[in-house]
């Protein structure tokens, strides 16, 4: 067996340590070792975006990242969005704007939208569609997802004002 490696990173603000084989994918570490099952396994082939997590300020597909690549990184998953019992503006907006039906893609959608709004706090519909294109949804037709992201952008701007 290949040499296992100790990997330390911050997950939703908390320090975690794991010991993994180099071939272990981040999505498996999150779901199976750390019981963070918000990021979903959809396609396992870098297409669907259901496994999206925020890694050092980047939205990444955790099925295509090795856990050993994450030493010293800071990670945010959907489990880290709710703060003190209050939902994040994106979570509220997906609820209020009906941005989901079955909900399978939602953790990835919200995690991706979080980084998009950090980079571009007031995106146009076209920009949302372009920069959210790595996340697939088979239910909604995307219309309400776009609305939810726009709604969240307004809420976040109002909260910051």
């Amino acid at each position: 067996m290949a040499t296992k490696q100790a990997v330390s990173f911050k997950l939703n603000g908390k320090a975690v340590d794991v010991v993994v084989e180099p071939r272990e994918l981040l999505i498996h570490t999150l779901r199976e070792r750390l019981q963070h099952t918000g990021p979903h396994i959809g396609c396992e082939t870098t297409h669907c975006g259901a496994c999206t997590v925020d890694l050092d300020g980047m939205s990444v597909k955790s099925c295509t990242v090795l856990t050993v690549q994450c030493q010293d990184s800071e990670m945010l998953t959907i489990e880290g969005f709710e703060q003190g019992g209050a939902l994040h503006a994106l979570q509220e907006s997906f609820h209020e704007q009906h941005g989901l039906q079955c909900g399978f893609c939602t953790p990835g959608m919200i995690t991706r939208a979080y980084r998009l709004l950090k980079e571009n706090p007031n995106p146009s519909e076209e920009e949302i569609r372009y920069w959210m294109a790595g996340n697939l949804c088979r239910c909604t037709g995307y219309q309400n997802i776009v609305k939810a992201v726009q709604h969240a952008a307004k809420k976040l701007a109002a909260a910051a004002a």
């Binding site: 084989e21 071939r23 272990e24 994918l25 498996h28 396992e44 090795l66 050993v68 690549q69």
Partner: peptide, 11 residues
């Protein structure tokens, strides 16, 4: 889908 075993180096 899991890769074959390998050793990892991060120079």
């Amino acid at each position: 889908m899991i890769p074959r075993e390998f050793e990892y180096h991060a120079p």
